[in-house]
């Protein structure tokens, strides 16, 4: 049943999980912090993947949703002293609500136009944050002193003890992977992929394309907003500079280079784009230059990304009787 390729794939995944789980035993603070960033961007990449990978919508304003989550967390935490982990769902909801409002009128735009509009969107959000909109975002200086998350009275400080934060982020990444895997294989995931590969055919088959696209946007934004909470609580300080257009570009590259629509691909993308440059400190300034070249080369030789999604299989013997019509 299982061919060699699948076996090899599984072996690599198992080795990776093993490495990830045991990393705090032998890696120092610095590298654990690097892995923390990898995990953070992996989650962001996965949330963007719902919009860009499954939905096929060229969205380059993901940093806007991330920013809204982080700012919601910071403001509520500072103003009302609510523990950050409790704010997390609210941060997600704020980002999702924002996505619902802004994505509604632009959802029908064709790929490249959507790209430009979402770039505009992230810039507008950043400018709004800098201009201290509503007087609560702290302007260009940002917001200081966000408290660290605590679980059962045990505080997890992301700066002093990256090891502790590592477990929190790993848990969140794990939950994300499981949920998004289920989503990918659900009716919703199938519909998204269908409308991504042929929108007219999907609409003809009775799929509410605009509704599904909007739902993808909202789910992706919700998750990015929750990730914003973890980011804000990790470094305890946020400013508009952390949510620039380049942040969106990085998330976009993670998905496109890794393999859009593929969970392992996106995780690999995060490792390559966030983790790898840390190993070559001397080349840090060449980082974006090299990624730019990689983007061009990938599009010419392997546009589907390094690990493209596996073609979906629907084995007849595992289907429900009612689903098989012969």
């Amino acid at each position: 049943m299982i061919d060699k390729k699948t076996k090899f794939r599984r072996l690599v995944y198992a080795a990776f999980v093993l490495f990830w789980m045991t990393a705090p035993l032998y890696l120092n603070k610095y590298f654990i912090d690097v892995l923390n960033n990898v995990a953070l961007y992996a989650v962001l990449g996965l949330s963007l993947n719902i919009i860009l990978g499954y939905g096929g919508m060229f969205h380059m304003g993901h940093a806007a949703f991330y920013a809204i989550g982080a700012y919601t967390t910071a403001i509520i935490n500072i103003q009302f002293g609510v523990p950050v982990l409790l704010i997390m769902p609210l941060a997600g909801m704020m980002a999702g609500l924002f996505a619902l409002v802004v994505a509604r009128p632009i959802i029908h735009l064709r790929g490249d136009y959507l790209l430009i509009v979402t770039i505009g969107l992230v810039e507008i959000v950043r400018i709004a944050l800098i201009n201290n909109v509503f007087g609560i975002t702290g302007g260009a200086n940002g917001i200081f002193g966000i408290s660290s998350p605590s679980i059962f009275g045990y505080t997890i400080n992301g700066i002093v003890h990256p090891h502790h934060y590592y477990y929190l982020l790993t848990a969140f990444l794990g939950i994300t992977i499981v949920l998004f895997f289920l989503l990918e294989h659900s009716r919703f995931g199938r519909a998204l992929r269908y409308l991504c590969s042929d929108e007219i055919a999907a609409e003809g088959s009775g799929i509410n394309t605009a509704g599904y696209k909007l739902a993808a946007f909202v789910i992706g934004a919700f998750w990015a907003g929750m990730t914003g909470t973890l980011y804000a609580a990790k470094i305890t300080f946020i400013s508009p500079e952390s949510f620039s257009f380049w942040e969106s570009v990085v998330m976009f590259m993670i998905v496109i280079l890794g393999g859009s629509g593929s969970i392992p691909g996106v995780i690999l993308g995060a490792i390559l784009i966030i983790g790898l440059p840390e190993l070559f400190q001397g080349l840090q300034q060449y980082r974006l230059f090299i990624f730019g070249i990689a983007l061009v080369i990938m599009m010419i030789f392997r546009p589907q990304g390094i690990i493209p999604p596996k073609p979906p299989k629907y084995p007849v013997n595992r289907l429900d009787k009612s689903e098989v019509v012969l």
Partner: peptide
Amino acid sequence: RLSAVVSALGASIVFSNAIML
């Protein structure tokens, strides 16, 4: 068409960083 758009984006990143370097 979107492959070319991504490639254009890559080229843009390459150019601006080349100028910086």
